[in-house]
């Protein structure tokens, strides 16, 4: 959790933490557009230890879960509900490499445009050729898609490694994620395990 800012708790007027008041334990008003890294008090980076995410998530959820506010005032119950939803979402973004990558590159974990960003013509042409070849020789596409997905993941890793070293930028990320999503359609990309 980021360190307590100089904000007063709405309930006890002591200096509050960001999510929960350090003095009275009341949940504080949740931010309108939460940053998943900030919410869990983690430094924004792609190469992230998933146990750190889980630890931060559990520590905060323990304090903020609606079950802790059963019988409390409606306003506290409401804030605890909103916070816990934010924590669940933050964990979902940070535990999934694709969502995490998209968030770092675009500031949003979801695909922004309906249907996703436009894929470039060379990529689509290649896919078209593959599909034609699949019709003649079924089964040919799966290993190719798998190899391509693996190379895209390696490219993403390299992009983020450079970025975390203070070089390069992430403008290609969204397109590469869209390609991965397209390749997912062949259902051959092995699920990422953490």
């Amino acid at each position: 959790m980021p360190e307590a800012e100089n904000l007063a708790c709405w309930k006890c007027h002591e200096r509050a933490g960001v999510a929960v008041c350090v003095s009275c334990g009341a949940p504080q008003p949740p931010p309108p557009s939460p940053d998943p890294f900030a919410v869990l008090g983690l430094t924004p980076r792609f190469f992230l230890d998933p146990t750190l995410v889980d630890e931060a998530y559990k520590r905060l959820t323990r304090k903020l879960h609606p079950d802790r506010f059963s019988g409390k005032a409606a306003v506290e119950r409401r804030m605890s509900l909103q916070w816990t939803a934010i924590l669940n979402d933050a964990r979902r973004v940070l535990r999934d490499p694709d969502r995490r990558a998209r968030w770092l590159a675009t500031g949003s974990a979801e695909v922004r445009e309906r249907g996703g960003p436009r894929l470039d013509t060379p990529f689509l042409q290649q896919m078209f050729t593959w599909r034609e070849e699949e019709e003649e020789d079924p089964g040919v596409i799966a290993p190719r898609a798998q190899a391509l997905a693996a190379s895209i993941r390696a490219e993403l890793d390299a992009l983020f490694r450079a970025w975390e070293a203070g070089q390069g930028e992430l403008s290609l990320v969204e397109d590469r994620l869209a390609r991965l999503k397209y390749l997912d359609g062949f259902a051959v990309v092995p699920p990422q395990k953490e």
């Binding site: 959820t61 879960h65 079950d67 802790r68 019988g71």
Partner: peptide, 16 residues
């Protein structure tokens, strides 16, 4: 009992 906030069973139990 846990929802009473002073449970003798498992005060810290968190259910997700």
């Amino acid at each position: 009992d846990i929802l009473t906030g002073n449970s003798s069973l498992a005060d810290d139990l968190l259910l997700l």
